[in-house]
Amino acid sequence: MKTTASLILTILLTTLSFASVADEQRPDHFKGQQAASLTEAVELFRTSNQKLKQLLQGDLSPEAMVEIHQLTYTLENALEKIHSETTELKEVLEEVHLGSENMDFAKVKKQAARYLDTATTLVK
């Protein structure tokens, strides 16, 4: 029993040390551009995708790979902001849905306006 525990501990420590070495060999990480609003996130997403498409047009060089690596951080940040905003948007739409079922005119008017304000940002 003690031997099994020692073996498991050894395997775990070996795995952690290999992971640590792998992290040390990875290139420096970047923060990427942050979006303070959904509008900014959508714009960053759009422009960063255009830049990625341009970088992929020709042969990939080490410089292009560095640019792509940096660009992915901005894209990840934009997607995270869009995801958080659309999660809230889904909740607001549910309020519109429930309000319409219950003939709650004031609630539908208020929540639908909130919904449309955010939704139109996504489809400009």
Rank of each mutant, 00 (worst) to 15 (best):
K2S: 12
A64M: 10
V123S: 13
P62F: 05
L75V: 03
L60A: 11
T87F: 14
G99H: 05
I8A: 13
A36Q: 13
Y115G: 08
T39S: 10
L9C: 11
R26V: 07
L13R: 04
A5N: 10
T15S: 12
T14V: 09
K90R: 13
L55G: 02
T74M: 03
L98D: 05
E95S: 10
K51Q: 06
R26S: 02
K31I: 08
T72C: 12
N49L: 07
E67K: 13
L75F: 00
R26K: 10
T74R: 01
V92F: 06
Y115N: 04
V108S: 00
A106D: 11
A41G: 01
L7C: 09
E43K: 02
A78N: 06
T15C: 08
E24C: 12
T74P: 06
A41C: 07
T72R: 09
L93M: 11
A22I: 07
D59K: 13
L93Y: 06
M1K: 09
T10F: 14
V42Y: 03
T15W: 08
E80K: 14
Y73W: 08
A19P: 02
A106F: 06
T47I: 01
L122Y: 07
D104V: 00
H29D: 13
S61C: 04
V108E: 05
L122I: 03
H83I: 04
L122P: 03
L98W: 03
K109W: 10
L7A: 11
L7D: 15
E40T: 00
E88G: 09
T3G: 11
T4P: 05
T86V: 09
Q70R: 12
D59T: 11
I8F: 14
K51G: 01
H29A: 13
G99W: 00
E101Y: 07
K51S: 01
A36H: 07
D59N: 13
L71W: 01
L52H: 07
S48H: 01
K53L: 14
Q70K: 13
L13D: 05
R46N: 06
R114P: 03
Q70T: 05
D104W: 03
F30L: 13
E95C: 07
E63V: 10
P27G: 10
R26M: 13
E91K: 15
A113V: 04
K90H: 15
L52P: 06
N77L: 00
I11M: 11
F30P: 06
L52M: 14
P27T: 13
Q57R: 12
A113D: 04
L89F: 05
F18P: 01
E94W: 11
L93N: 11
T86R: 04
L98Y: 09
T87Y: 11
I11E: 07
I11N: 12
L44K: 03
T3M: 14
I68W: 02
V92W: 05
T87P: 10
E88Q: 15
T121G: 10
